[in-house]
Write a protein that binds this DNA or RNA. Structure first.
Lengths: 198, 198
DNA sequence: CTTGCCATGTAACAAACGTTACATGTAACG
DNA sequence: CGTTACATGTAACGTTTGTTACATGGCAAG
């Protein structure tokens, strides 16, 4: 309906994907999307409101894209293979900037929770990779879920820093090999523990 | 020798450990360490110079502390066990804030390399955990080194976000178990590849 | 005593910040 | 046509930013 504001929101997402969150200020941001500071405040109420709405829209986009990935993959492979598929999706050129921005958001929320934590109710990347690692897994312990998420996060951080697709993807494969070679774990120690809330 | 400036530097490190890097500005920072903006610029030349010197001193501190850890541990255990010892050191109350700040620095450097990359020539945490994972290991492939670092980074990120020592440490043990249970890898595929430079 | 260096205080600068007041356009609806 | 709602421009507000000019203390050396 309200195309004006929606166009603006899309442009703002694109701007944030390119420039990051750390030092956004109203006037350069407005110039970057072909608008004015006056207009941004008019549409979003304040800078804080703008970030809230725009980041929300961005997370919704990521969530939707990832959901589509999983339902088209559904019950096919083992858990580690799903992790690998999620990795391939995350490092694709179309999705990488979004994930990157979500990681920046997370770090900022750690150091300045009052400002950024509200925008980070649930981290889409985390909750999805968690869902995945728990889904129909032969070894769904809390430790294994935490470990899978950590491997993903750590390798993604490496990729953001170094840009080395080959090495990081090879490490992901190495992990999957380790995980699948391990004994399926004693079924007695199964837990259904979860992190925050998907 | 120059005790004045050194006291200041120590106080500034303490301030940054508590408040993070994302939104430091001169006057609040000066007030926080019992000085004045005038004095900070006098001693460090500029805000940028201040960050350069203070962050450098901080990295030196971390490097020195970690080095001490490794030489006292020397050639004792296997590589995975060393990783665990490094983990214990990193999450200790005395060291945790330093690592946390280094991770914030790394994220800022990713999104804004021109400003922060110079302060991040070599990330002390990374280069050390790498050194460790390659040291006298039965399976020193590039993939395995990358994976070990990623596990450490990912779990530390989790710990920073959730504060859950028990779960993250359990996941670390899980990884170590996986790594040690795996076949020692075919000696033919050994590589001596390294990341940046320790 | 004076000279000079290091340290510090006061005050201001121009720029950029988020925000707001006021005016004006544009277009739909009665 | 008039009215009403949304959209936009101009300009300023008070604050905070990094930085600088100018002045002044303390203290050691000549």
């Amino acid at each position: 309906m309200a195309t004006r504001k929606d166009e603006l929101t899309q442009a703002l997402i694109a701007y944030l994907l390119e420039h990051g969150l750390a030092d956004v200020s109203l006037r350069p941001l407005a110039a970057g999307v072909g608008s004015s500071a006056r207009l941004l405040v008019y549409h979003y109420g304040s800078k804080e409101g703008l970030l809230a709405e725009v980041l929300d829209a961005m997370q919704a986009h990521v969530h939707q894209a990832a959901t589509k990935l999983f339902e088209q993959t559904s019950s096919k492979g083992d858990s580690p293979k799903l992790l690998r598929r999620f990795w391939d999706w995350a490092i694709a050129d179309a999705n990488f900037p979004y994930l990157k921005l979500l990681y920046e958001l997370q770090i900022l929320a750690i150091q300045d929770p009052d400002t950024y934590a509200p925008f980070l109710q649930r981290d889409a990347a985390k909750s999805l990779s968690l869902t995945l690692s728990l889904m129909s897994s032969p070894m769904r312990s809390a430790s294994m879920a935490t470990l899978c998420i950590a491997v993903f996060d750590g390798l993604f951080l490496d990729l953001m820093t170094t840009g080395d697709h080959a090495r990081t993807t090879a490490a992901m494969d190495q992990f999957i090999k380790l995980a699948m070679a391990s004994p399926p774990s004693t079924p007695a120690t199964r837990k259904k523990t979860r992190k925050p809330k998907p």
